[in-house]
C-alpha cells in the first residue's frame, strides 16, 4: 500500500504550475524538434511562435514556482496534514537521511521493502532540485539563440564563452534531451510507482487514502482507509 496523499502534499498552486510546466515542456520539445529539422512543410512560423511563447511562459512559471516555494506551505511528507514552507521539501530532510543507498537498492530490485522517506525520495529530490536550474539554464541558452535577445551583453557573453552560436545551439539541443530523459523517468515512475491515486492528486487535486506518516516521529503513524475522492 502506498502513502496517503492529502491536499497539503500538493497544494493547488503547485498543481497549476505543474500543469503549465507539462504543457509548455511538451510544446517546447515538439516545436523544438521541428525547428531543429522541419520534417514537413508549413509550420515553421507557428513552431517558432509556440517555442518562444512557451519558453517565456515556462521561464516566468519557474520563477513564480521558486518564489512560491518560500511563501506557500506544503507537507514535507505524504500521508500527513502537517505543513511547513515548501522549501523544506527541497532541502535535505531528516526523513531521508542515510536512505540514498536504500533507494538505489530498491530500484535495482536488491531489496524488497520500499524505503521510508519524505515526500520526495532521495534520487527524486536530487533530480527535482536540478530541474528549476536546468529550466533557467535552458531559458538562458534559448534567449542566447533568439535573435531579438541574442546580442544583449548578458547572453552574448555566454555565447562567446561556449564557443559561438553553433556550440550554444548544441548545448540547447543536449539540454532538451536532458529534459526528455528526465520526463521518461519521471513519467515512468509516476505511473509505475505513484499509480492512479498519485496521478489523480497531481492532475486533478483529488486526495486518496493510504498509510499516514508522522513528521515528528519520522515514521508511519497508521493507515487511512477512507476513499477520499
Amino acid at each position: 500500500m502506498d502513502m496517503a496523499e492529502y491536499h497539503e502534499t500538493h497544494p493547488l498552486p503547485f498543481i497549476v504550475t505543474h500543469w503549465i510546466n507539462l504543457v509548455c515542456m511538451i510544446c517546447l520539445i515538439l516545436s523544438g524538434f521541428y525547428i531543429h529539422f522541419p520534417a514537413f512543410d508549413g509550420f515553421m512560423g507557428v513552431a517558432r511562435g509556440i517555442h518562444v511563447l512557451c519558453g517565456i511562459v515556462i521561464t516566468i512559471n519557474i520563477i513564480v514556482r521558486i518564489v512560491m516555494t518560500f511563501i506557500v506551505k506544503s507537507a514535507p511528507g505524504n500521508g500527513t496534514h502537517e505543513t511547513k514552507a515548501d522549501i523544506y521539501s527541497w532541502l535535505p530532510q531528516k526523513d531521508n537521511r542515510h536512505q540514498l543507498t536504500a533507494w538505489i537498492g530498491y530500484y535495482l530490485f536488491l531489496r524488497k521493502e520500499h524505503p521510508l522517506g519524505g515526500k520526495y525520495g532521495v534520487p527524486q529530490k536530487i533530480s527535482y532540485v536540478l530541474i528549476p536550474f536546468l529550466i533557467l539554464f535552458m531559458a538562458y541558452t534559448g534567449f542566447a539563440l533568439w535573435e531579438p535577445t541574442s546580442q544583449l551583453p548578458f547572453f552574448l557573453a555566454g555565447t562567446e564563452a561556449f564557443g559561438g552560436m553553433m556550440s550554444m545551439r548544441i548545448i540547447h539541443y543536449f539540454m532538451m534531451f536532458v529534459f526528455i530523459l528526465f520526463m521518461f523517468i519521471h513519467v515512468y515512475l509516476s505511473f509505475a510507482e505513484g499509480g492512479k491515486g498519485m496521478m489523480k492528486m497531481m492532475f486533478f487535486n483529488k486526495e486518496h487514502g493510504g498509510l499516514t506518516y508522522d513528521m515528528k516521529t519520522h515514521n508511519v503513524s497508521g493507515e487511512d482507509e477512507r476513499n477520499l475522492e
Binding site: M1, D2, M3, A102, K112, E113, H114, P115, L116, A192, E193, G194, G195, K196, G197, M198, G210, L211, V220
Partner: peptide, 8 residues
C-alpha cells in the same frame, strides 16, 4: 506497480 509498495 500502481502504488502497490510495501514500506519497510
Amino acid at each position: 506497480l500502481d502504488g502497490n509498495v510495501r514500506f519497510e
